[in-house]
């Protein structure tokens, strides 16, 4: 598969002088077209920072990022981003919030009505499209935010802890939905998570990131068949990957 995203010597330092925070890197990494890669690491290791740098919303302090062969030097508009804190606006309904992504891009929401409805159905929010964000639970808000991030049909998705606020059961459901979606359309997905099991279940590769300043400790190829249902998750190979990852974090004293 061709390379889609390439990081070379990417480093981020916030601030300067004695108060500077070395948040991330330096890191070299390539992300292939159509892969599902998880960024797995403890809180504060720079996962969100990395994601924002790939999206061109945060400058790198050192190094360079290329996306589809072009150097990232400003906001990338042909990707779908789900931010860690959801970007639903309180003055629009769920439906209105999804349309906002289209309107901001100059696309007439009426043209994409069928798309929006399908997207809403896929996250089981079709009955809540006329509700305002404050009328939804945290998990429902996250699902609405997912639709907002995806409605313009991006081929690359950056998802920052998209399942963070969901309960275990819903989380399991959405994981399989997400996996089905990925298998069907094969977008490139960069997926940020704290959950070892989640990363291994969903990803073709897992990038294990060290505590701050985040560096790539290891990239684990997850060579298991898709879809990774209950059967696969109880296999020895799956459990082996989980233990390997846990080992890394144990050595860092994170768990």
């Amino acid at each position: 598969m061709p390379t889609l995203i390439e990081l070379s010597g990417v480093k981020k330092v916030f601030g300067s002088g004695p108060e500077a925070v070395h948040a991330f890197g330096p890191v070299d990494m390539t992300i292939e077209d159509g892969e599902f890669i998880s960024l797995l690491g403890p809180s504060g290791c720079g996962k969100s920072t990395l994601m924002l740098m790939i999206a061109g919303l945060l400058d790198t302090t050192e190094g360079a990022i290329t996306l589809a062969g072009r150097r990232v030097a400003g906001p990338q508009t042909d990707i779908g981003i789900m931010f860690q804190d959801n970007t639903l606006v309180p003055w629009r309904t769920v439906r209105g919030n999804i349309d906002l992504q289209l309107e901001m891009r100059g696309i007439d929401p009426a043209e994409r009505a069928a798309d929006v409805e399908e997207l809403l159905r896929s996250v089981h929010l079709e009955d809540f499209q006329a509700r305002y964000p404050h009328e939804l639970s945290g998990g429902m808000q996250q699902r609405a935010a997912f639709c907002q991030a995806m409605v313009h049909r991006p081929k690359t998705m950056l998802l920052d802890e998209p399942l963070g606020k969901l309960d275990a059961m819903t989380r399991e459901n959405i994981r399989s939905d997400l996996q089905a979606l990925w298998m069907q359309k094969r977008p490139t997905v960069v997926f940020v998570t704290h959950s070892i099991e989640e990363a291994i279940q969903l990803s073709s590769r897992v990038a294990v990131i060290t505590p701050r300043p985040g560096r790539i400790e290891r990239i684990i190829d997850i060579d298991l068949p898709f879809p990774r249902d209950f059967e696969v998750k109880s296999s020895a190979a799956f459990i082996g990957h989980v233990r390997e990852t846990q080992e890394i974090f144990r050595n860092y004293g994170v768990i």
Partner: peptide, 10 residues
């Protein structure tokens, strides 16, 4: 976050 969202839409 909303500033970033707006920028990401171009």
């Amino acid at each position: 976050e909303l500033t970033r969202f707006a920028r990401s839409t171009g």
